[in-house]
Design a protein around this nucleic acid. Structure first.
Length: 536
RNA sequence: GCGCCCGUAGCUCAGCUGGAUAGAGCGUCGGUCUACGAAACCGAAGGUCACAGGUUCGAAUCCUGUCGGGCGCGCCA
């Protein structure tokens, strides 16, 4: 199968023409769908970038590139215009659009080319302490990490996913003490866990006759079961759960810290072992092993990341909460000390989320026990709406999730708006099948309607969108893209008859356009982990 | 005090490796069902892109500073 991407081909044409006529450019020129009709179908800033190289005015260079393109593209290019400070506006022929539809149809949708340099990536996300249920905030992490993984894979990176289970530290002791307190019918300590679920754990511990020493382990195990179940309900498939304690059990903490030592970046002082994180921009060096001989949380986490590297991952992508951003510099320092040139650490810091209902924020604090759990959120608004809303905003922004809107089962709710477009397309395709019309790669000579063009242009933009989303670690772009695509389809549907269009070829071609659009909406939603229903 | 994130329409937010007249959803107001799904479409109103300098052909976007909000600054996890 010969997979093609008309937009990439156009970009290549622009690049080659400018290389032949001017020379190498300092940066990659843009080639974007125009924002208004008078600017053509595609606009490029190539001449403004090439002007300094050529030593000539941008508009003159644009003219020359335009002439070269016209020669090269033949009957694909209707005409070109030079505009403003030197933009090159391309007007494509109807035939080019029809061919693009036929190409995408034959290829079962727009082709997303793989990245040139795939990286063996480990995405670590959620990693919430196994001392309580996942919260709605964890839901943001879960949705983000999962969607990011899907997007990275879509562009060809091999990606493994993991949840780091903090089952080794003092939080577990507090957790066990909290369960024990509830078993005795007293309030857990101030800094303990006071949520309602602790009562249930205490009840279970009592009925199963768990000894006081076993409370921590049993509690963690039960919470992990519940966390896994919540993630599964949320359609988040984290491949493995890595236990912090297993690091100690397998001697990996010593091993990891030893490896660090070999790089010469550690030293002893005041009885403790330190990592020279200041070499990499940290405010102060950090303790790996306390003077008492116990590794710090950081020490264990360094060992964990050393283990990720030893498993062959070269990009360690950690999805962390805003309250951990202070941690990033030191972990980056550790990975750079450990991995040298081979491995990179990258932290995605997710900002806080506020649930809003009736115009008021709900409170979310784990310790206080006054929380909205992920399960409750999913129960309330459904998996699809929850994922869409949690993914809609850029990860580095605090966000508000409007429960009233998310609950709305109408097109006011963006997720249903997108899903509706898909259902509508599937309905049309069923109708066509009943009428005996089959989509094809026909190239009807009929003029291409403006809203048809707009739809095709968006479909052609899909590969680029996915790549940008992957590079910027930005699933929210796919949300926005899916909404535009749905809107473009509705406009097309308004203006263009599909089944019953005048002329067999036109009917088949438009049907192909519907199929490609449906497939692309489905793929977009799939990147977000959201279902694409046949009917609603 | 220092570090990170943020400040764009009434609200929630896109746009930020500089590019043409700054966009979307919600909300508000008005219009469209005798063609394939009205869970749709069309239109209107709504902006000193926090503020002040700077960089240049061009700044919401880059730099500096100020103000405002969030988060963080342990041999806690």
């Amino acid at each position: 199968m010969n997979r093609r991407d008309p937009v990439s081909e156009l970009k290549t044409a622009v690049l080659e023409v400018v290389r032949d006529r001017v020379g190498e450019l300092p940066s990659t020129p843009s080639l974007d769908p125009s924002d208004r009709p008078e600017h053509g179908d595609f606009a490029s800033n190539v001449a403004m970038l090439a002007a300094p190289v050529a030593g000539r005015p941008p508009r003159e260079v644009a003219e020359e590139v335009g002439v070269g393109l016209a020669e090269r593209l033949g009957d694909s290019l209707e005409r070109f215009e030079v505009a403003g400070p030197g933009f090159l506006n391309l007007f494509m022929t109807d035939r080019w659009y029809r061919t693009a539809v036929a190409t995408m149809f034959e290829d079962d949708g727009p082709t997303v080319p793989p990245v040139e340099a795939p990286r063996d990536t480990m995405v670590e996300f959620v990693s919430a302490n196994p001392t309580g249920p996942l919260t709605a905030a964890s839901g943001r992490h879960a949705a983000y990490g999962d969607a990011l993984t899907r997007i990275l894979r879509a562009v060809g990176h091999p990606v493994a996913t993991e949840y780091y289970v903090n089952d080794g530290g003092s939080q577990i002791e507090k957790f066990a003490a909290s369960i024990a307190a509830r078993m005795e019918g007293v309030e857990p300590p101030e800094d303990g866990y006071r949520g309602e679920y602790v009562n249930d754990l205490a009840e279970r511990a009592r009925s199963e006759g768990i000894s006081p020493e076993g409370l921590g382990e049993a509690g963690v195990s039960w919470m992990l079961d519940s966390i896994r179940a919540s993630l599964e309900r949320f359609r988040v498939g984290i491949e493995s759960f890595f236990s912090e304690r297993s690091l100690y059990d397998r001697g990996l903490v010593e091993k990891g810290i030893e490896r660090l030592g070999e790089t010469g970046s550690t030293y002893e002082s005041e009885g403790a072992l330190w990592l020279r994180t200041t070499d990499f921009g940290d405010d102060k060096d950090r303790v790996l092993i306390r003077s008492g001989g116990e590794p710090t949380y950081f020490g264990a986490d360094v060992a964990y990341h050393a283990d990720k590297i030893s498993r062959g991952h070269t990009l360690l992508l950690d999805v962390l909460g805003a309250d951990h951003h202070g941690y990033v510099t030191r972990m980056d320092a550790a990975v750079r000390s450990l991995g040298g040139e081979e491995a990179d650490f990258e932290a995605m810091i997710l900002q806080m989320i506020h649930l809003v209902e009736g115009g008021e924020r709900t409170k979310m604090s784990k310790r206080a026990g006054d929380i909205v759990t992920l399960d409750e959120l999913v129960e309330d608004i459904g998996v699809d709406a929850a994922r869409f809303f949690l993914l809609q905003r850029s990860h580095d922004r605090t966000m508000e999730l409007d429960l009233d809107l998310a609950r709305t089962k109408s097109s006011d709710n963006p997720v249903y708006y997108v899903q509706y477009a898909h259902a509508r397309i599937r309905s049309i395709l069923r109708k066509a099948a009943d009428a005996g019309v089959v989509a094809s790669d026909a190239l009807p000579a009929d003029p291409v309607d403006p809203s048809e063009k707009a739809l095709v242009a968006l479909l052609l933009a899909f590969p680029g969108e996915v790549h940008v989303a992957a590079e910027k670690r930005a699933p929210h772009r796919i949300c926005a893209y899916s909404m535009s695509l749905a809107a473009a389809f509705h406009a097309f549907y308004r203006d263009c008859q599909v089944v019953g269009a005048s002329g067999r070829e036109l009917e088949e071609s438009r049907l192909a356009l519907c199929e490609v659009t449906g497939a692309t909406i489905r793929r977009s939603l799939d990147l977000l982990g959201i279902s694409a229903p046949e009917s609603m």
